[in-house]
């Protein structure tokens, strides 16, 4: 893994891997969304509104996968001091926050016609809103730490610690519909079982794969951007010294 400690080697790989993820990701995601929008039959109770499933559920998974990425990368940064881990964690924050926001917005739009309300403070909805606020906090903290580092105050580990501590919310989101009576229904897909009919399940899984590839491509793109920022900063400082 320390083979990638050399940013130049990582950048060479990221350059071809990024389009390799983004292009198939976009094709799969839009294909699955079109399938879900035009070809899937209406649900017996929810009717046409079931089509929002194909954007709501993959966004929810990626909102949580985004923070899991932050947590794992933060652990690698703190324990092994891998130079790219902190960059990877910071790169995952903005796409993760975006998917979390999409999940909350589509969920709210879906809730109005089905449940009869835009929002309720039940366990699932509240813990997911907290996830969005954790992302905002993380992004602000990472930005502040980067400015400190640029000002020569040394690398801050606070961001990584916050990334790890925030991960406590992930199992809470996952279990919220099991532990507490909630308006949100319990999970439809659990270890190898699905209460979702095949007509909905296949486009959902393809949409999830497509969204995941897009997420991966975005993280790589942001890692390249953050590394370029650091290089520019270092070069400017050398010029100022000279």
């Amino acid at each position: 893994m320390h083979g990638f400690a050399n940013p130049a080697r990582f950048l060479r790989m990221a350059r071809w891997l990024m389009p390799l993820m983004l292009v198939p990701g976009l094709i799969l995601a839009f294909g699955a969304l079109a399938w879900g929008l035009f070809m899937v039959p209406p649900d017996q109770l929810m009717g046409q509104t079931v089509r929002i499933l194909f954007i709501h559920v993959p966004s929810a998974w990626l909102g949580m996968a985004g923070w899991s990425t932050i947590a794992i990368a933060s652990l690698v940064e703190l324990v092994w001091r891998h130079p790219l881990a902190g960059i990877a964690a910071r790169a995952a924050a903005v796409p993760g926050a975006a998917f979390t926001a999409i999940c909350l917005a589509t969920g709210s739009i879906w809730a109005r016609p089905t449940w009869g309300t835009w929002w309720v403070w039940d366990g699932r909805l509240t813990s997911f809103l907290i996830l969005l606020f954790l992302y905002f906090g993380y992004i602000a903290l990472a930005g502040a730490a980067q400015r400190d580092a640029a000002a020569g105050e040394g690398a801050s580990r606070v961001t990584a610690i916050f990334g790890l501590v925030g991960a406590v919310n992930i199992p809470i989101i996952n279990r919220s519909v099991v532990w507490w009576n909630s308006l949100h229904q319990p999970p439809s897909i659990t270890a190898g079982k699905s209460a979702i009919d095949a007509a909905f399940l296949y486009p959902l899984l393809i949409a999830a794969l497509g969204f995941t590839l897009i997420f991966g491509g975005l993280v790589l793109a942001r890692m390249r951007m953050l590394l370029a920022d650091i290089q520019t900063e270092a070069r400017l400082r050398r010029k100022a010294m000279a």
Partner: peptide
């Protein structure tokens, strides 16, 4: 004063109704 519908975890196409 207010009713909220709770959906279950099952998604079934209308034809099966």
């Amino acid at each position: 004063d207010n009713l909220l519908a709770k959906h279950d975890e099952k998604y079934v196409p209308r034809e099966m109704k």
